[in-house]
Design a protein around this nucleic acid. Structure first.
Length: 226
DNA sequence: GCGACAG
DNA sequence: ATCTTGTCGC
């Protein structure tokens, strides 16, 4: 992939990281996808036992044929701690490094974490999306901020996620009897597109296939190379 | 001051 | 996120 050049450093203080988020958040674009997505990349990051290394990976999923088109991984030292609200400063660098290895051009990138559903409206899906200038969406397994009702126990049921008077995303039931996921836009996508695509990629499990397979990928790589 | 807090 | 045993259900 031919990605844009780096726009800022990553080894900055949490204080400056927050300021950077506020500045870049204005660049997020809430716009419909230009065409029905066919190649969807799911990304995830695993951490080594001692917590010093990160392994990021992407799995490109063909939604039409339900097949894997490509997989890539990248290893990097962990240079930023996990701080709620600043996840992208810890994981995005490795995810970008891995994305640079992709040969194909995904139509959308699905991130394991929040997008707009963030205290400053700039979760990892927004940050990654703005930096690489590609359509992205956030599909998190739990809540970071906001309030919502419990969606009905049926596939596709959902409830809005609100925070400070704004609609940040939707809590979506992807499987009956299991916890819903938190879907929000990352960049260059509309919430309706994000939800539709998330559901379309959920075939047999709670998480959409691209994300689930990416999680398996980085976990296995970590096991086979401490 | 206290609880909450993506991965 | 990672660690970690058994357990319930299809």
């Amino acid at each position: 992939m031919n990605l844009p050049r780096a726009r800022h450093r990553w080894n900055i203080s949490p204080k400056k990281a927050v300021l950077l988020q506020r500045r870049l958040a204005s660049e997020v674009m809430d716009t419909p996808l230009e065409s029905p997505p066919r190649r969807v990349a799911g990304g995830d990051v695993s951490v080594t036992q001692d917590g010093s290394g990160l392994i990021a990976g992407w799995v490109v999923w063909d939604v039409k044929n339900a097949t894997v088109l490509e997989t890539v991984v990248a290893r990097q030292p962990a240079r930023f701690p996990y701080v709620p609200g600043l996840l992208s400063f810890r994981e995005a660098p490795s995810l970008i490094a891995a994305a640079r290895k992709l040969v194909c051009e995904p139509d959308v990138f699905m991130m394991d974490g929040q997008g707009l559903a963030h205290p400053r409206r700039f979760g990892i899906a927004c940050h990654f999306g703005v930096l690489i200038d590609r359509p992205t969406l956030g599909c998190a397994k739990s809540r970071l901020c906001g309030i919502h009702d419990t969606p009905a126990d049926a596939v596709g049921a959902s409830k809005p996620l609100h925070h400070e008077g704004q609609l940040l995303g939707r809590v979506v039931r992807t499987r009956p009897g299991v916890n819903p996921v938190y879907v929000s836009i990352g960049h260059r996508i509309a919430l309706a597109d994000a939800i539709r695509l998330t559901l379309k990629c959920c075939t047999k499990f709670r998480l959409p296939e691209p994300c689930r397979l990416a999680h398996q990928l980085v976990t296995k790589v970590r096991m086979n190379a401490p």
